[in-house]
């Protein structure tokens, strides 16, 4: 009886495990195979090559700077999105006239495909005929067209802002769910004791929202770290690779230049980074809960 009971859960997850294995482990397996072999540009393997693909990557200055920039990109976009989303969620959680419309408007960017959003931004940021320049000019804020995407620094800053903009809807949705799970009587009780709004936020809202912030942090980090369309559409990682992150660097290596071995190595490194991040984070979150 007991042995059957212990077997049942495993049996029940077996189908999804098989499915997961087929769509996760199998491709990862062939990735490892390609990354450790000498490969021609059509993916045909030419034999084991002593991790030459990996050493070629670490000797490549463009890869190293893309690695650092990916970290910066992830921290800025995820951090920015979290900072913006908390107040936005708090406001949308209040009862005010037109709240439903405000919620819909905020969610809209989420409904548009990321690539399409990026294409629209590329047009808007065009130096000579872009909307942003003509709007700023009309408002009298600038007197000369700004070339938003011409230099790496400014282009990257704009990409981070676009990244934050498209990450906010998802993050806000998670926070709204979290806020609605906080019982209203906590606020009433604390108000009776004379707590200010700020104290309520610090001692009630924030602690109870923490698990939701954690989820948003982990999921957004994974999405943003891997996010391809914004950077690819606006600058293709240029000028002179100065806005490349790992995933755009990978695409160029694999499909422009035809170094599939090195490209596979990049994607394994990305997988490893995300895996380590997730494990550390889950550990930390678990520990906190036990304490």
């Amino acid at each position: 009886m007991t042995s059957r009971q212990t077997a049942i859960p495993y049996l029940l997850i077996l189908p999804s495990l098989v499915l997961a294995a087929a769509i996760i482990f199998w491709p990862v397996g062939s990735l490892i195979e390609i990354a450790t072999n000498d490969v021609n540009r059509f993916g045909q393997l030419k034999g084991w090559n002593d991790f030459a693909n990996f050493s070629a990557l670490f000797a490549n200055a463009d890869f190293i700077s893309a690695l650092w920039r990916t970290g910066l990109w992830t921290v800025l976009v995820v951090g920015g999105a979290l900072l913006v989303s908390v107040p936005v969620a708090l406001i949308l959680n209040e009862d005010f006239y037109g709240r439903d419309i405000a919620r819909v408007i905020l969610m809209l960017p989420w409904a548009v495909s990321l690539t399409m959003t990026a294409v629209v931004w590329r047009w808007s940021l065009n130096g000579e005929s872009g909307m942003l320049n003509s709007a700023l000019m009309g408002l009298g804020i600038i007197s000369e067209n700004v070339q938003w995407l011409a230099s790496g620094d400014l282009a990257f800053a704009m990409q981070v802002l676009i990244g934050i903009l498209v990450t906010v809807p998802f993050t806000t949705t998670i926070f709204l769910g979290g806020l609605s799970s906080i019982p209203q009587d906590l606020y009433e009780a604390s108000a009776l004791e004379g707590a200010s709004r700020l104290q309520q936020f610090r001692h009630i809202t924030l602690p109870l929202l923490k698990p939701f912030i954690n989820i948003a942090l982990v999921l957004n980090t994974i999405y943003v770290f891997n996010s391809f369309p914004i950077i690819w559409v606006t600058t293709q990682g240029g000028p002179a690779n100065s806005t490349d992150i790992l995933v755009t660097h990978l695409y160029k290596l694999g499909f422009r230049i035809g170094k599939l071995g090195e490209a596979s190595a990049v994607s394994l490194i990305m997988l490893a980074i995300l895996l380590v991040f997730t494990i550390i984070y889950v550990r930390l979150a678990m520990k906190e809960r036990e304490a």
Binding site: N126, G127, L149, A150, T235
Partner: peptide, 11 residues
């Protein structure tokens, strides 16, 4: 045109 590095052929 200013900002040549932001202009592709199509631009």
């Amino acid at each position: 045109q200013p900002g040549v590095t932001s202009f592709s052929r199509e631009d």
